[in-house]
Amino acid sequence: MGPDISHHPLAGADGSATISSNLYSVLAAVNGPIEVQRRDELPEEAAIEVNIRPASGVGGPRERWLESVVTAVLRSVLLVHMHPRTLIQVTLQLTTGPTLKLKNATRDISVLPSLVNAAFLALVDGGLPLQSTVTAVLLAVSGEEVISIDPAEKELAGCKSVHALAYTQHGDLLLNESAGNFNLEVWEEVADRAEKACVAAVALASEDDEMANGTAEAAPWLRRELEEKARDAVAWRDHT
């Protein structure tokens, strides 16, 4: 049910989180709002800098592209006007990845949901002002037009198209990266499933929902994690 998450693993960074799914493990660290270089300074909003570090090797154009995508998503989520002329620095370290050989386009898109989710959790941990939640999900469409959410490595290796989508808690589409061979009808079905899964991840769980729809897709994993984190943060009050 949901990926494996640990809160605040690092002492040095303002906010940090690790997220481990069946494909990737990402460690995210956030520093901010901090001092910004003159050349990157924006007069009315905070500048956002995302650094993606692969597990092996130094980053190249692939990492620059991923950084630009994640930056654009985070800009829609952060309340940047609350900290003008500062910098919010997000560093994402990939620690493990899939071992099977994947096509480059599939590999690039499959890492995006883990990166976005990890960055969001680190921002929450760092106490940065956010205007909405963002949940990202990965879907793969097989040759027989079967759509699977959070596909396993084998499904990714043989898929016809791969899609990474991110939604806010209200169902607004913040990110859509789709690659492969597909048509509009397939995409619409993919978008529907993704929206349901993302909205369900932060939805208020009602008793009937839990009983009726016990599938992994409908589980509010993000809400549970954040609620647990909030409870732990005030636990000291109960002990004193």
């Binding site: 990266e177 789709s178 597909f182 048509n183």
Partner: peptide, 9 residues
Amino acid sequence: DGLLRLEKT
């Protein structure tokens, strides 16, 4: 099927 890529951010 027609569509090769959709990129929205």
